[in-house]
């Protein structure tokens, strides 16, 4: 792989982590001493994607703004890597007027038509609309593709299986990605899933399937490149399962008492590991690391400041946008 590509992957992951850390900090800043999920600058459930940055960086490196992504309830890493404006994203998470959905959506319901990005808070239900975007792209004669992403818990839902069948039947330009972070909230994969690797399920729908181990951004990049090329060139869908890491809780406030490996989790953080690898191969040095982190933090700070300065939506406008 080219050094610049590797640097780009690293830079993307750092930006995502910087954003998630800022949201984490702001989310918890004013929920003490009495925890109230609905209180504070950022109200509601918050599913952060720390640890899953390699998935977003490795896949989105192959996409342009013409390609679509459908994400799930944990969408920030994919939104950022696909090029979503950080200010509009942050403002929506803060529930402000200048957010993507003018405060109607929230962090699980992000829609950005300029980059064909959407997400759904209902497990596996982002897959069927992905079929329709792919259908429309194919119909237009465009070579755009859709990457449809959800967690390993989604692979036991009917919508997932129906979507694989239809995508394969109609040779739609979709890449299905299962982010296996081992946990569906508190239920481990081995307690929910009849197969060790969801990639084996691809065979049932006559499409290629591949599992990528170790949360390796470069392995993800390579596998995604093959799958996306396959979709773009009209050969139909692929199913990828990526073994990734949920570095934090299912949502903020999750004490994760069910997780026996809790103390070990931070040692699997993919960003320091990749940083170390690139340093050893002399693609990164401490100065460059500082520079990349600083640039990321500056972008994120601007976005958070923008969100905080944006007006709270006028209560009298709550009924707007039900219909066109």
């Amino acid at each position: 792989m080219e050094s610049q590509t590797r640097l780009d992957l690293y830079t993307q992951m750092v930006l995502i982590r910087s954003f998630e850390e800022a949201i984490l900090q702001n989310y918890h800043a004013d929920k003490k001493p009495l925890w109230d999920i609905g209180a504070g600058l950022i109200p509601g459930e918050m599913h952060l994607s720390a640890g899953q940055e390699p998935v977003a960086a490795g896949i989105c490196a192959h996409l342009s703004a013409n390609d679509a992504i459908t994400a799930a309830h944990r969408p920030h890493h994919l939104a950022i890597a696909h090029g979503m404006d950080l200010k509009s994203l942050a403002a929506e998470i803060f529930g402000r007027q200048d957010g993507l959905g003018h405060g109607r959506g929230g962090h699980m319901h992000l829609f950005d038509p300029t980059i064909h990005f959407s997400c759904s808070g209902i497990i596996a239900e982002g897959f069927p609309p992905a079929l329709g975007q792919a259908f429309a792209f194919k119909n237009k004669g465009s070579d755009a593709v859709v990457v449809a992403v959800a967690g390993e818990g989604a692979a036991n839902q009917g919508a997932f299986h129906e979507s694989l069948n239809l995508a394969s039947l109609w040779k739609l330009p979709v890449v299905f990605v299962i982010e296996d972070n081992d946990w569906a909230i508190s239920v481990p994969k081995e307690a929910s899933t009849s197969v060790v690797s969801n990639a084996t399920r691809a065979a049932a729908y006559a499409m290629p399937g591949q599992r990528i181990e170790n949360n390796s951004v470069e392995e993800i990049y390579k596998a995604a490149g093959i799958a996306i090329h396959r979709a773009r060139s009209g050969q139909g869908p692929t199913l990828l399962e990526i073994h990734t890491l949920r570095l934090w809780g299912h949502f903020e406030g999750d004490a994760q008492g069910y997780r026996p490996d809790l103390e070990q989790v931070p040692t699997h953080d993919p960003i320091p590991a990749y940083e170390q690898q690139l340093k050893q191969e002399q693609i990164l040095d401490d100065q460059l690391i500082q520079q990349i982190r600083q640039q990321a933090n500056e972008q994120v700070t601007l976005a958070i400041d923008y969100a905080k300065a944006s007006p709270v939506p006028d209560p009298s406008s709550a009924l707007e946008y039900v219909f066109c």
Partner: peptide, 16 residues
């Protein structure tokens, strides 16, 4: 139905 009604939504989002 889940797949093809969802497909309709996605196609509509893209202008069909």
């Amino acid at each position: 139905e889940t797949a093809f009604i969802g497909l309709a939504t996605g196609a509509a989002v893209e202008g069909m």
